[in-house]
Nucleic acid binder design. Structure first.
Lengths: 131, 131
DNA sequence: CTTGAATCTGACATTGACGTCACATTCTAC
DNA sequence: GTAGAATGTGACGTCAATGTCAGATTCAAG
C-alpha cells in the first residue's frame, strides 16, 4: 500500500510516516518512480511505534528497541546490547513514575469532576483501562 | 522561603519555578526589594504541579485545575465550570489511553530486558507501582 | 496523451517547558 | 559600607515531533 492508505489506516499523518522513516523506525519499498510501497505489516508496526511514542520514548530509543521486539511473524531479530539494557531500565523507571503520576492525576480529575457534577457521570468509576 | 531553597527542596529549577508563576500556577509574596518569598505550602504545590505535568497536562489546564483541588488545608477553593468539566473528561480519556500504552510499553521493555539478560533482573516482575 | 490526484523532497514554522546567559538589583555577613 | 551570594528580569536557544507550504514528479484513469 502507499503512504496515503497507510495514513488513513493508522490515523497517522503522512508527514509523520515519512519522519518515522528518517528515524529508522519504518521502512518501505520504492516503486520505480520513487513512491513508497508499504507491506501490510506496516500497519501493526506504526501502531507499535505510536504506542511507544505515547509512552514517552524518543525516536532513537524506539529505533533501538524495535528490532528487539518479537514481531508478529516470529521471534526478535536482535538482542539488546548491555548498553541498551541499562538505558531501558532507566526508561522503565521513568515509565513507572509516569504511571504512578497518571493514576494519581486521574484520581484528581475524577474528584474534581465528581465534585462539580454532584455525582459521578457515565463511567467515571470504572477506573480500569477502559478505552 | 526564597526561590533557591524551594528549588532545592523540590528538585525543580529556579527557572521552572518562575515559569510556573508566569503561568499562574504558583504565587509568592515579595520582599520590599522584590524577591519572591514562598509559603511552606509551596513545596506541596510544586509537587502537585510536577505530577500533573508528568501526567501530560499543559499549564493552562493545570491552572484551571489547581483551584478545584482540595488543598492540604481544607476543601477546594473553587468548583469546576461546565466547560472545564468537559475538557477534563477529554483529558481523562487521554490519560486512560496513556496508562494503557505505558503498561504495554513497560511489558515490552520487560520482555526485551529479560530476553537479553537471560533471566529477570532485580525486580523486573514486581510490576505494580514500585517507585 | 492528458489531466487530476497522489506523492516526492526540502525548507521553514510551531509548540511548550524548560536551559542558559547577560546584566541589574537586593540581600547577608562581616 | 562593602563584598560576594542570591535573586530579579528579559531575551534567546533547544529539542522533538509534527504542521505546512512550495514546487517538482509520478501514478491511475479516461
Amino acid at each position: 500500500m502507499r503512504i496515503g492508505e497507510l495514513s488513513r489506516r493508522t490515523g497517522v499523518s503522512e508527514r509523520s510516516l515519512r519522519y518515522y522513516e528518517t528515524q529508522g523506525l519504518l521502512t518501505a519499498e520504492r516503486t520505480p518512480g520513487g513512491h513508497r510501497e508499504y507491506a501490510d505489516s506496516a500497519v501493526d508496526r506504526v501502531a507499535r511505534i505510536q504506542e511507544l511514542y505515547t509512552a514517552g520514548l524518543c525516536s532513537s530509543k524506539i529505533a533501538q528497541l524495535l528490532p528487539c521486539m518479537r514481531d508478529a511473524d516470529g521471534g526478535p531479530a536482535a538482542t539488546a546490547s548491555a548498553r541498551l539494557i541499562t538505558d531501558l531500565a532507566v526508561e522503565r523507571e521513568r515509565i513507572n513514575r509516569q504511571i504512578h503520576d497518571l493514576l494519581r492525576s486521574r484520581d484528581v480529575l475524577d474528584e474534581v469532576i465528581i465534585a462539580a457534577s454532584g455525582r459521578p457521570r457515565s463511567s467515571v468509576n470504572q477506573s480500569k483501562d477502559q478505552r
